[in-house]
Design a protein around this nucleic acid. Sequence first.
DNA 1: TTATTTGCAAATCATTTGCCCGAAG
DNA 2: CTTCGGGCAAATGATTTGCAAATAA
Lengths: 125, 125
Amino acid sequence: MMKRSKQKEVILRIIKSTSSHPTADWIYEQARKEIPNISLATIYRNLKLMKDNGELLELDLGVGQSHYDGNVTNHYHFRCDKCGQIFDIDQPVDKAIDVSVARQTGHEVTHHVLKFRGICKRCKK
Amino acid sequence: MMKRSKQKEVILRIIKSTSSHPTADWIYEQARKEIPNISLATIYRNLKLMKDNGELLELDLGVGQSHYDGNVTNHYHFRCDKCGQIFDIDQPVDKAIDVSVARQTGHEVTHHVLKFRGICKRCKK
DNA sequence: TTATTTGCAAATCATTTGCCCGAAG
DNA sequence: CTTCGGGCAAATGATTTGCAAATAA
């Protein structure tokens, strides 16, 4: 019962075609190029729907806005403390650590979120 | 040049004497018991000051308010997706992974933040 | 037709700020 | 004294919501 709409298509296409981990705002600006009167609320509404649908990830970096990621395969991120840019980390996800923590704590561990912080290659120069 | 004040003392004492990873709001309620007319803005102002001073940590769990932790030694956390409670994870911090990511990406990695998610022991029952 | 979705504006919610007063050094 | 910290209320910024009109099924 989820209707498709032009705005949904545009939003999903924008997210799937970038690896820049954009914010809702950036997606909004891009979408406006195709649908000039699209509303920011529509962006947020659809991002949430698609997130709940497993079509994208919401990254909470703890600073300002959320970032969204069209790459739904589990992976880690690095955030530059200077320019704020987010990079994917090409490092295998360690499932064993979840098991280890579950055994140690007695909690049921479904997954973990790992974020690296520092200064990116470019800003370092 | 940081003046000491009764409110600073109270706030710091509250945080240092719990391992419940409280929110600013909870700290506010506790502080009111000792200083009834203390302001929430004062709580936030001092939490930020103390964070910048390295006296406490701010945990951003990506859901609602920030949580604060008087334990400044680097450690991991687990958040229950049902009750929202946060638990410390007694697992050694893996510094080697920072080095590995730095080598692989060329970025300067200062640290990483690792959060486990799932259902806690209590909620699981 | 009729259930969803949209755009818009107003509402939330956590956090921050401006301002003027009181307290610390 | 004189500067910094505090209380209060108003401002902010990101995200959400209510609602009537538009649109997909």
